[in-house]
Write a protein that binds this DNA or RNA. Structure first.
Length: 665
RNA sequence: GCCGAGAUGGCGGAAUCGGUAGACGCAGCGGAUUCAAAAUCCGCCGCCGCAAGGCGUGAGGGUUCGAGUCCCUCUCUCGGCACCA
């Protein structure tokens, strides 16, 4: 690209007057005058101009939580410096700003302060906008978007109906955290040590119907296109690659007969070469086989009920104690025909893969630990020259598929991993009991939320016509703004004036969907809408082609969004490309360059209460004493002059968690 | 538990290829200037030691003439783990 000519703007007289070189810098005067000048001249206004090269500088939009924090200031300063630098180089710069305005904190504030979420959110937006303006960022405020405004979310609903009609959004059961006291679904964040954060009740897993976006249909392209993103940090690309988690393996079946009916239990494995070492299979508590076995086994029924306790967060499931119980049922080994006992495992999830796993204790570390705990057989079926297998102690080579060959596996003895997988897959295929399969760790994206402050899902449930998308002419489905939030149940589900409607197809009385969408949906396309925020006839228009051509030039935001937000945004860009909106040039990837900033940290101070819990103290309330070399030696609370403990350098969220009164030492 | 990143003075951080560890800045200390202060300028500033010297890049091993840098093991911290945003 040819280097563009620099452009200079005349200063107006007010700015010129204060900007003359002075002894001291008076920010109140100089910045006010400079900002007034920029305002009058529309200095930050971005206008499409095909004759000039564009530079689209995007910062992740903030959640309007109340006030800007240091992380915002840092993030938007980086963006502003890049935007101004490129403007000085002569680029036609777009630096927009908006508000990721739906979400849980507004509902929490509503419960606490008895203020409707909409009112709270709009007040925060007004305040934070004024803070950004005082910071003097070169933002084109004419393009501001707030995701909670109907002008924005109507197009999200419009897109939903298109994707629903294409089958890219579908309905299936999903597992959620259920608070049995508050009778409400909880976010993972609201489950603390397996209990509801407000009620304190033990949380249960519950399966409910939800809408899912078929992101797995794009798994292959989302993975392959990571290679094109050479303007992204390597670590972020690697994290996304591992998250998508492409693996090749074998989907195979264990046949069984139950109640006089023949059936098959399907599992997926990347280690088909160890198939002859299977000594049991484990199914999820919700698996039909588990339910069937529990019918005449009260102890098993009690265990299954216990498995349903606790939340659904993967980190909790992965760290909890592995427990299991035999069902008393057996399935047949697909090759040897030997009986294989079926166990229920609390670590097997119905929503992952087939809801069942085959266990090879000899060559999988977790299966090994489980087998030892419950006295299940451990069989060696892989050998490495010079190494001795000992069924009482796990050794790393047991699970390493890059070394060793099959043993104790009959005709497969002597084959290495790849050859054994091929041979076993061929034999399974011949029997109709399996085939090679590519599998992704990535799961379809559940977007239904049983919450009020979000974008209503534009579906009408009709007894005769089923799930009917709301026709374009009836969009947007408006979210009522004056509601009372109690923290129990979903407010929309208690509002007949919202959900009572008629079927768009047959006209009979019908019920409107009361779930709202995951707020990640809004943040998956806002960067495209900045190009045409005023269009009330279409979601996007040709202005997107100008600003987003070749990708948004620079995206800046926190590393915490390295996977979910950035993957969803990439997914939406491809979805929108494939919808082929009129006048829109195809765009494969939204962000050409990505800059992920770290977390802002600061010194922390705390006291320990009688119960041993740390109570974090605002650094502004602390006096720090130092020695003659400037090293901190002690700290006291200004209010009582008594010592507080120095907690080191940490992220701001520590002090945010401060609750209750500060204990005396 | 799994994936990713990291650990260097009181603090933020340099050291691009394996070659003088701590550039630059902040804080601190000393001095100049000043009636005094602020501001400014000059100097000192890893730890122990009067010094000579010794020690030192999260811990422990290893490779090398030489390791902050490469290899192995471990510890801790941070981000994410699909309903926080």
């Amino acid at each position: 690209m040819a280097r563009p000519k620099p452009c200079h703007e005349p200063l107006n007289s007010a700015f010129a007057k204060v900007s003359n070189m002075q002894e001291k810098y008076h920010p109140a005067d100089i910045e006010r005058a400079a900002q007034a000048h920029w305002q009058q001249t529309g200095a930050a206004r971005a206008v499409e101009d095909p004759s000039r090269p564009k530079y689209y500088c995007l910062s992740m939009f903030p959640y309007p939580s109340g006030k800007l924090h240091m992380g915002h200031v840092r993030n938007y300063t980086i963006g502003d410096v890049l935007a101004r630098f490129h403007k000085m180089l002569g680029f036609n710069v777009l630096q927009p700003m908006g508000w990721d305005a739906f979400g849980m904190p507004a509902e929490n504030a509503a419960i606490q302060n008895k203020v409707p979420p909409a009112k709270w959110t709009y007040a925060n937006i007004d305040y934070m906008r004024s803070q950004l303006q005082r910071l003097g960022f070169a933002i084109d405020w004419e393009r501001e978007v707030a995701t909670c405004s109907p002008a924005y979310y109507r197009w999200e609903q419009w897109l939903f109906t298109r994707l629903f009609e294409k089958g890219l959004i579908y309905k299936k059961l999903g597992t959620v955290n259920w608070d049995p006291v508050d009778q409400t679904v909880l976010a993972n964040e609201q489950v603390i040590d397996g209990r509801g954060w407000r009620s304190g009740a033990l949380v249960e897993k519950r399966e409910i119907p939800m809408y899912y976006m078929k992101i797995t249909a794009y798994a292959e392209e989302l993975l392959a296109d990571l290679d094109k993103l050479d303007g992204w940090p390597e670590q972020v690309r690697l994290m996304q690659k591992n998250w998508i988690g492409k693996s090749t393996g074998v989907r195979l079946a264990f046949p069984y007969e139950l109640d006089g009916k023949a059936d098959k239990l399907w599992v997926f494995t990347t280690r088909a070469d160890t198939l002859m070492g299977v000594t049991f299979v484990a199914v999820a508590a919700e698996h039909p086989l588990a339910a069937r076995a529990a019918q005449d086994n009260p102890a098993l029924a009690a265990f299954i009920a216990e498995c349903k306790k606790g939340g659904v967060a993967e980190a909790d499931l992965a760290t909890m104690e592995k427990k299991g119980m035999p069902t008393g049922l057996c399935v047949q080994h697909p090759l040897s025909g030997a009986p294989i006992p079926v166990w229920v495992g609390n670590y097997v999830l119905m929503s992952y893969g087939e809801g069942a796993v085959m266990a090879v204790p000899g060559h999988d570390e977790r299966d090994f630990a489980f087998a030892q705990q419950y006295g299940l057989p451990i069989r060696q079926v892989i050998a490495v020259p010079g190494e001795t297998f000992d069924a009482t102690v796990w050794q790393p080579w047991y699970g390493d598929k890059t070394v060793g060959v099959c043993v104790n596996s009959g005709k497969y003895d002597g084959l290495d991993h790849a050859a054994a997988v091929d041979a076993i897959a061929a034999d399974l295929a011949a029997k109709g009991l399996g085939e090679k399969k590519t599998q992704f760790r990535l799961r379809d994206w559940g977007i239904s939320r049983q919450r009020y402050w979000g974008c209503p899902i534009p579906i009408v449930h009709c007894a005769d016509c089923g799930d009917v998308p709301v026709p374009d002419a009836q969009l947007p489905v408006l979210l009522p703004e004056n509601v009372e939030i109690t923290g129990t149940g979903s407010p929309l589900a208690r509002m007949p004036e919202f959900f009572e409607t008629t079927c768009p197809k047959c006209g009979k009385p019908a019920k409107r969907e009361t779930d709202t969408m995951d707020t990640f949906v809004e943040s998956s396309w806002y960067f495209l809408r900045y190009a045409c925020p005023d269009n009330d006839q279409a979601m996007l228009d040709a202005r997107v082609n100008y600003w987003c051509q070749g990708g948004i030039d620079q995206y800046i935001g926190g590393i915490e969004h390295a996977i979910l937000h950035l993957l969803y945004a990439r997914f939406f860009t491809k979805l929108i490309r494939d919808l082929g909106l009129p006048g829109m040039a195809p765009l494969d990837e939204p962000f050409k360059r990505l800059l992920t900033q770290g977390m802002v940290v600061a010194p922390t101070f705390y006291r320990e209460g009688a119960d041993g819990k740390k109570c974090w103290i605002n650094p502004a309330d602390v006096d720090v004493s130092t020695d003659e070399r400037g090293r901190p030696r002690g700290a006291t609370l200004k209010a009582d002059g008594l010592p507080v403990r120095i907690g080191g350098i940490e992220t701001g969220c520590r002090s945010r968690r401060t609750t209750g009164s500060i204990p005396r030492p």
